[in-house]
Design a binder for these strands. Structure first.
Lengths: 208, 208
DNA sequence: ATCGAAGGATTGTTGAACAATCGCTAAATT
DNA sequence: AATTTAGCGATTGTTCAACAATCCTTCGAT
């Protein structure tokens, strides 16, 4: 039974992920409390949760705002991803963990066949989540989950075209094959190149 | 102007770091509110902050308890450290960042000369913080800070002897030298060995 | 001894209140 | 006219008091 504060946080997370709440938007305690039919205090607890995930930033005495990533933040996020994902993949991982990676790749193929852009995006996230899971660390998994949630925030502004995603799809397949072939170092190289390309694209789309 | 909730969180963090509050101990909202002269609601917000840092765990409807690391958690924490620290040191880092590593090493020497065990411990933490800072990522820095805070929690139970720390001291010096010599890969090897040794020791001290 | 039913304590949540602070507007000063 | 100042309104930060929900324990019944 999740607490009310958790449900509020979930609802807000959803709205953030779906782009209902755009970066920079202000979240007023009272209106959210009314909208969701909860107390202001409960909203406050939810805010604390979201703030700890960097999805939202608190300006003391001014309110909380949907986090918006600056150019520097994009590089920072990709630095984290390079460090974590590349290390995780270098370790190889258990057969089950590798199977999960494969599963994410297939999920992407299905979405691509169905022309489901939304599904392609989530499949891609599942792929990277599975990559990190190779390390078998609970803490790394949650760290990665937070980074991915943070990235979803500006994916909306950057709404990349379908070709972009299908490019990812092919790359993921290659990485997965290298992994399955027992060549984690090669997989790591491919992943690294992928991340560099992705960051470049993001920086480009995100302006200046 | 830190908010009251922040100050409460700071105070609790302090007590956690100093071992006033031992792992597994229960934190009752009302008593803490009284002790610190704040509202129960404010204590609640502080708890949310600490929980997000894993210093404390919430058992729904039961209360919050000082986090206590199980054997599995120790391995997990060291996995995170291996991934982040080794990657960070492999990148080499800017001269200023390397200088910060050197500074932490010297800090340790001073503490050792003064027979200051406490100081030796914090110098060691500064060293690893500086290692991660080589990557130049704000996010990685805060992640590392949290991991170190988490580790401080069970350092008390494990109160390692002075010889243990002085062994660290020598290792840190070697790593630093390798870094300064422009051999980050060798530094990474040393660091990795260090972390493995450290984990082993921790697991040993922590029982079973 | 086992099981189950009160009882007490603590958390989860609400609602209302008030001080502190911020941003804005309009008046006042130069 | 431009800039400073003063005041106003709105929102946050914090407290307090209450109550429902939940858990742990104790006590009693079988």
């Amino acid at each position: 039974m999740p607490s009310v504060a958790d449900r509020v946080a979930d609802e807000l997370r959803l709205q953030l992920a779906e782009g209902v709440l755009l970066p920079g938007a202000r979240l007023t305690e009272s209106t959210i409390a009314e909208d969701l039919g909860v107390s202001r205090n409960t909203v406050r607890e939810a805010f604390a949760e979201l703030a700890s995930e960097r999805l939202v930033v608190r300006h003391p005495n001014r309110g909380v705002f949907v986090a918006s990533l600056e150019a520097g933040d994009i590089h920072d996020v990709y630095t984290v991803r390079r460090v974590i994902e590349v290390s995780a993949i270098r370790g190889g991982g258990t057969p089950e963990a590798v199977a999960a990676v494969r599963e994410a790749v297939e999920e992407g193929k299905v979405a691509a066949a169905a022309n489901d852009d939304e599904g392609l995006g989530t499949a891609n996230q599942h792929f990277h989540k599975a990559i990190v899971a190779l390390a078998g660390s609970r803490r790394l998994n949650t760290i990665m989950a937070q980074v991915l949630a943070e990235m979803r925030l500006f994916f909306h502004k950057a709404t990349m075209d379908a070709h972009f995603y299908s490019g990812y799809l092919k790359g993921n397949e290659e990485i997965c094959v290298a992994l399955e072939a027992g060549e984690p170092d090669r997989a790591a190289e491919l992943l690294l190149a992928y991340l560099d390309r992705s960051e470049e694209k993001q920086a480009e789309v995100h302006g200046e």
